[in-house]
Lab assay of single mutants.
Amino acid sequence: MDALKSAGRALIRSPSLAKQSWGGGGRHRKLPENWTDTRETLLEGMLFSLKYLGMTLVEQPKGEELSAAAIKRIVATAKASGKKLQKVTLKVSPRGIILTDNLTNQLIENVSIYRISYCTADKMHDKVFAYIAQSQHNQSLECHAFLCTKRKMAQAVTLTVAQAFKVAFEFWQVSKEEKEKRDKASQEGGDVLGARQDCTPPLKSLVATGNLLDLEETAKAPLSTVSANTTNMDEVPRPQALSGSSVVWELDDGLDEAFSRLAQSRTNPQVLDTGLTAQDMHYAQCLSPVDWDKPDSSGTEQDDLFSF
Rank of each mutant, 00 (worst) to 15 (best):
E64H: 13
A78N: 11
S224E: 02
Q106S: 11
T149I: 13
L47I: 07
L47R: 15
Q302C: 08
S16P: 09
E217A: 06
A162K: 04
V248N: 04
P237E: 00
C148S: 15
Q187G: 04
P202C: 01
E301L: 03
S186N: 07
A69Q: 15
A278W: 10
D37Q: 14
T274M: 03
A258L: 01
K150H: 00
K79I: 04
L141K: 09
D183A: 08
N268D: 11
N102W: 04
F48S: 11
L53S: 07
P239V: 03
L42M: 08
D304M: 09
Q20P: 12
M124G: 02
A121I: 03
N138M: 10
D304W: 12
V271G: 01
A263I: 07
E188I: 08
A133G: 15
D191I: 03
K91Y: 15
P32W: 01
I12D: 08
N211E: 04
K91S: 06
R9E: 03
E33H: 12
A162R: 07
A221D: 03
Y118P: 15
L251P: 08
A258S: 07
G26T: 10
R95A: 00
P201F: 02
D191W: 11
A228N: 07
S140Y: 15
A3R: 04
A278Q: 08
V88C: 11
A156D: 12
S117F: 15
I71N: 09
T77R: 12
V128M: 15
L107D: 11
R238S: 08
K87E: 06
K84Y: 14
L103V: 12
F169A: 01
T231S: 07
E177N: 12
Q139H: 14
G23A: 09
C119F: 00
N211W: 06
D122M: 11
L213S: 04
D122F: 03
Q264G: 06
G26M: 03
L85E: 11
P94T: 02
K87A: 07
D252V: 12
W249A: 14
D198T: 07
E170T: 06
L17M: 14
S227W: 05
K19Q: 12
D37Y: 14
A241H: 14
N102G: 10
C199H: 12
N105G: 01
N268Y: 00
T160R: 07
M233Y: 07
A10L: 09
M153K: 12
E216K: 09
S117Q: 03
Q279Y: 05
R115S: 10
L213Q: 11
G194M: 03
I108V: 04
G24P: 09
I12M: 06
T104N: 00
A284G: 10
A228V: 15
H144L: 14
T149E: 03
V236N: 02
K127N: 14
C286Q: 07
A263D: 02
F169I: 01
T267W: 13
L159E: 02
V247D: 14
S21T: 05
W292K: 00
R73M: 15
K220Y: 02
D303N: 05
Q60I: 10
P289H: 10
L212K: 06
W249N: 07
K72W: 14
G244Q: 04
K176T: 09
E301V: 05
P15C: 00
A70E: 08
I132K: 07
T38A: 14
V161T: 08
A185R: 12
E217T: 15
W172L: 01
H282Y: 13
C119N: 07
E217Y: 13
H282E: 00
E40K: 15
T200N: 07
F165Q: 01
F259V: 02
P239L: 10
K79D: 05
I108G: 03
K179Y: 13
D296I: 01
D122K: 09
E216L: 11
G82M: 04
P32C: 02
M124H: 09
E65A: 13
V192Q: 08
L103C: 05
L4E: 02
A195S: 12
R151P: 01
I113T: 07
E177T: 01
P237Y: 07
T100H: 09
E235Y: 10
A3N: 11
E217H: 02
S246I: 11
R238W: 13
P269D: 02
E64Q: 15
D303Q: 05
T209S: 11
V111C: 11
G63R: 12
D101V: 07
S186K: 05
G299F: 00
S307W: 13
C143P: 15
C148Q: 00
P61C: 11
S288P: 00
R73H: 13
A145K: 05
I108K: 01
A164W: 11
V167A: 03
I74D: 09
P239E: 07
C148V: 00
V88W: 11
E178T: 04
N211K: 13
I98G: 13
V271Y: 12
P237K: 06
K91H: 01
L17H: 09
K220F: 02
K83V: 07
I71M: 12
T231N: 15
M55H: 10
R39M: 04
R39I: 08
T38H: 02
D234G: 02
S246T: 07
V157C: 01
K179L: 12
Y118I: 04
L57Q: 07
D198Y: 07
T277E: 07
C286P: 08
E301A: 14
K30Q: 14
D291T: 05
